[in-house]
Amino acid sequence: MELTTIWFILIAVLWVGYFCLEGFDYGVGMLLPVLGRDETEGETPHSGETRKRQMLSAIGPFWDGNEVWLLTAGGAIFAAFPHWYATLFSGFYLPLLLILVGLILRGVGLEYRGKVDSPAWRARMDAMVVAGSFVPALLWGVAFTNIVLGVPIDADMEYVGGFWNLLGPVALLGGLTTLTLFLTHGALFVALKTDGRLRHDARALALRLGAASAVLAVLWLGVVHLRTGTTASWVVAGVAAASLVGGLLAAARGREGWAFTGTFVAIAMATTSLFLALFPDVMPSSLDPAWSLTAENASSSQKTLGIMTVVALVFTPIMLLYTAWSYWAFRKRVSGHHIPTEVHHAAVVDGGERAGAER
């Protein structure tokens, strides 16, 4: 197998990891005002603030580590396929800038939410988390739909379209699909990682969101693969659809672990199907197929790819082992009774909330 193909596969794996792991972070962030409302039912009702802190504590050990997958994917594209990187970041400059701003707002909101003991302060930080989760969840679907279907690229490997060229109906459908998929993924993560009424509310919401995401996903993947799909991409897209349906059936039976696994596999297979439909191109040209960027004409030298391959063989297993260990170490549920009802001094450490209560 050629090094260009190997690096195309490695980059696909990085994007799969990013969407599967960061996807539930986005979902949890967007659902803060929905699931984080005041609870009045049950024997031990919890305030909306307690529910929000349960949700944020659930993703606290993971969210910043999950973003490393994005940084690594971007760095791999830059090093392995510099022409792809240059055309992508120049042509998609505004959407990528909006995603970056969203990630910054989200990070600030998560890190500084507990720094001031004020409802108004926390409300502002929550708004930043919601907005910073919504924008990337929507725009990544728009971006990848355009990448697979093709954009205006001339003979000099330069993007010659405008921002509005990226907002076609199919691209917006892709954005809505990733948005609802991540919402469903996040709701199931909350159901898996919390207890009490919040767990049941999250599971019920996931079923409603999942029904909408399933319809959108079938339409989106169908349109994309009808235009540029291969036999392999169609098969993998079918596995994605089956996994999503299976996950929703598991959620209906109260099996949150299997339900979350279903959405995880669905996102992984849907992303994989896009890369299968894309290969051997990395950015097809809608003006002339001969002007498309391919894994061959957009790649670095063989020497560069060889050095990168050695580095990847050393550090990729380390990254995977550390990621697996972190999820295993923080595998238990976040219980509402572990969170103090009155907090006068709170701090956010490593993305998770640590409260010191002074009675």
Results as ranks from 00 to 15, higher is better:
S213T: 01
I318F: 12
A217G: 12
S233T: 05
S273M: 09
I59H: 01
A127P: 00
D25W: 06
R197P: 11
S213E: 02
E256K: 01
G210R: 06
A240W: 00
L305H: 07
D350K: 13
M269N: 00
S90W: 04
F163C: 14
S299Q: 07
V148N: 07
W84D: 07
V142A: 14
S299K: 09
V68F: 15
E49N: 12
V282D: 06
C20F: 11
W220C: 00
I59K: 00
I99P: 05
F89Y: 07
L244E: 05
T263D: 01
A242Q: 00
P82H: 01
R208S: 13
G42R: 05
A191N: 04
A251P: 05
S300F: 03
L207T: 08
E22A: 15
H337C: 02
L172P: 02
G222D: 01
V245W: 03
V68A: 15
L321G: 09
D25A: 11
V170L: 11
A251I: 03
H83A: 11
A211D: 04
T194C: 11
G102R: 02
H345Y: 05
T230E: 01
H83C: 06
T316Y: 12
V151C: 13
D117P: 11
C20A: 14
L287R: 07
M157E: 13
V236W: 00
L207S: 11
A171P: 08
D25Q: 09
L205K: 13
A187L: 12
L70N: 10
T72D: 02
L320W: 12
S326D: 15
A268H: 01
T309A: 11
L205P: 05
G91K: 09
D288W: 06
T184F: 13
L166G: 15
F24P: 04
A357L: 13
K303H: 13
A242W: 00
L98R: 07
L209E: 08
D117V: 12
G352V: 12
K332H: 15
F189P: 00
G75I: 02
A76Y: 07
H185I: 06
W69H: 04
L287Y: 09
Y26A: 08
P284L: 08
D156M: 13
L244H: 06
T341Q: 14
V223G: 06
K193L: 05
I6W: 14
G91A: 15
A155F: 15
G132N: 07
G23S: 05
V218F: 12
R359I: 15
E39F: 09
G36H: 11
L10E: 15
